[in-house]
Write a protein that binds this DNA or RNA. Structure first.
Length: 209
DNA sequence: GTTCTAGAAC
DNA sequence: GTTCTAGAAC
């Protein structure tokens, strides 16, 4: 007997429809949150990542760690939606992202790039300091999404658009990258657990050369 | 994206 | 016994 869960009320229009996960649109909400917004103009909004994978706070004796997201005002769901017409916008996002990094700490190493297969809807450029010293960075997926080729540099996306007029990424290939063994992004040493890796990476220096 | 937690790994 | 990972979430 097909025992389907009884729907509570008449509000559900169709039982076969997917519920469309509410959290996917979290970035649109964050763009309106004054606690998170650090910059805004007619083209873009820059916010602090709500769960920064590098620290956003300044600690005494410890260099500051940062994780920002640059998002276009225009509704662009993901990298696949991009065309040649977006090149100027992406260059602008990258320039403003760099400005944000410099104003946060111009002595600290940053990378600017996109997740090949992001969880959240709405195009967002990660601007993240390379210390990765954060309580919110907990899982292998977190780690590999920022330290393997899953993290695609902003320049590379812009190059692809200029050459092909589109961004082509093989989703299945990138999903595999998230399962790779843990490896220090600086000295390439292997680690068997996240806590061991997180202790290790504190020993490296993340100042710009 | 996060939270929660069963059970694997140690 | 504790630490840690990985999969479900209606």
């Amino acid at each position: 007997m097909a025992t389907k869960r009884k729907s509570d009320d008449s509000t559900a229009s169709s039982a076969s429809k997917k519920p469309a996960p509410f959290w996917k649109n979290g970035l649109k909400t964050s763009m309106e949150d004054p606690e998170l917004v650090v910059y805004k103009d007619d083209k873009i909004t820059v916010i602090k990542d709500k769960y920064p994978k590098a620290r956003n706070c300044v600690y005494i004796y410890i260099q500051a760690k940062y994780h920002f997201l640059v998002m276009p005002k225009e509704n662009i769901p993901n990298l696949k939606s991009l065309t040649g017409s977006h090149i100027d916008l992406l260059k602008y996002m990258q320039r403003k992202g760099k400005e944000q990094a410099d104003s946060a700490d111009e002595t600290l190493q940053f990378r600017l790039g996109y997740h090949a297969v992001p969880s959240m809807s709405h195009l967002h450029l990660h601007v993240i300091s390379q210390d990765f010293d954060s309580l919110s960075l907990k899982t292998k997926k977190h780690w590999n999404s920022f330290t393997t080729d899953y993290f695609v540099d902003s320049e590379e996306i812009i190059d692809q658009l200029e050459e092909d007029g589109k961004v082509s990424l093989n989703t299945a290939t990138f999903q595999e990258l998230l399962k790779k063994n843990l490896k220090c992004h600086v000295c390439k040493k292997d680690f068997s657990t996240m806590p061991a890796l997180k202790t290790h990476i504190k020993q490296h220096n993340y100042r710009r050369k």
